[in-house]
Design a protein around this nucleic acid. Structure first.
Length: 279
DNA sequence: AAGATCGACAACCGCTTTTGT
DNA sequence: CACAAAAGCGGTTGTCGATCT
């Protein structure tokens, strides 16, 4: 017998999420935690597929998401990781706290790919598109673990921070040093080669904890979730909503962490009835 | 000013992998 | 071990705002 569809197509809403739907989903997750996505729509009163709920939560509503364009260093890390891992977006995303695979994939397709092509680098192989004209190119992908690249390693540009720089205006984003953790910087500072750093490569290929555990609070499951939600999140949420009446700056700003601020932003947007863009 | 085109990104689709029985 | 269900993943599409003509 064939596999059942992930959800009953009849009566299931598709398309952009509304603020009201976001609100229901947020409230449900905050109250019950993440479990059994298939049951979520019914329990949360949503006419959506469970899969759609999961995607909406993981890609957009999770409070630990950073949002906004990737910083130059994040972009560079993505390039390095892509050189090592290929299109394994979830693996790449796991190394960038607060970023989702979907976000990185979109950013890759819309920004980074073009930049690399403009710089004469094949975004798939990370090798120069025209080796003759790019031998002197100073950009590097650190993808020296790519066996094919190693064969050509005279031509493979490298992104090391050893004085190499990008000559075009792309370097403003690719080489800027915005706000990546020192761990990330260390990672960037090292060539990720199977020969020179098999442990790092192994780390990248395995499901290790992210470099920064920014999202660890949100990886709770239902049992912990309830405590978390009742003790912290909901309290914070209602407090945060209260804060809106006063203005966030009327409070001790240090008492809010990123997740709280994100919840506030989401709830504020929902309150304004236009949802955090995306809907 | 209006329509056409383009770019960015959220969301969907379908396949694969993991987990539970 | 076999099977089904659930979750994860990556490619693709649809929508919407910005820009161009």
């Amino acid at each position: 017998m064939g596999r059942q569809p992930c959800c009953d197509k009849l009566g299931v809403k598709k398309g952009p999420w509304t603020g009201e739907e976001d609100n229901k989903l947020i409230n449900f997750i905050l109250t019950n935690g993440q479990c059994c996505w298939r049951a979520v729509p019914k329990l949360a009163g949503l006419r959506r597929c469970g899969k759609s709920c999961r995607l909406r939560w993981t890609n957009y509503l999770r409070p630990d998401l950073k949002r906004g364009l990737l910083s130059g260093d994040e972009e560079k890390l993505v390039i390095d990781l892509h050189a090592s891992l290929g299109n394994r977006w979830s693996k790449i995303a796991a190394k960038l706290p607060g970023r989702t695979d979907n976000e990185i994939k979109n950013h890759w397709n819309t920004h980074i790919k073009k930049k690399l092509v403009k710089m004469g680098i094949d975004p798939v192989t990370h090798e120069p598109l025209n080796k003759e004209t790019n031998i002197s190119s100073s950009y590097s992908t650190t993808n020296n673990n790519n066996p094919k690249s190693q064969e050509d390693n005279n031509h493979v540009p490298s992104t090391e921070h050893n004085g190499a720089s990008i000559s075009s205006d792309e370097n403003s984003s690719l080489c800027s040093s915005d706000n990546v953790s020192s761990n990330d910087s260390n990672l960037l500072d090292n060539n990720i080669t199977q020969e020179s750093d098999p442990f790092l490569l192994s780390y990248l290929l395995n499901d290790e904890p992210p470099l920064v555990e920014a999202s660890s609070d949100w990886e709770f499951q239902s049992s912990e979730a309830h405590n978390y939600c009742s003790n912290v999140t909901l309290d914070n949420t209602s407090m945060l909503l209260d804060c809106q009446d006063f203005g966030i700056h009327d409070f001790d700003f240090d008492s809010f962490d990123d997740a709280d601020m994100n919840i506030l932003n989401i709830l504020e947007a929902i309150d304004n009835n236009d949802g955090p863009k995306g809907s």
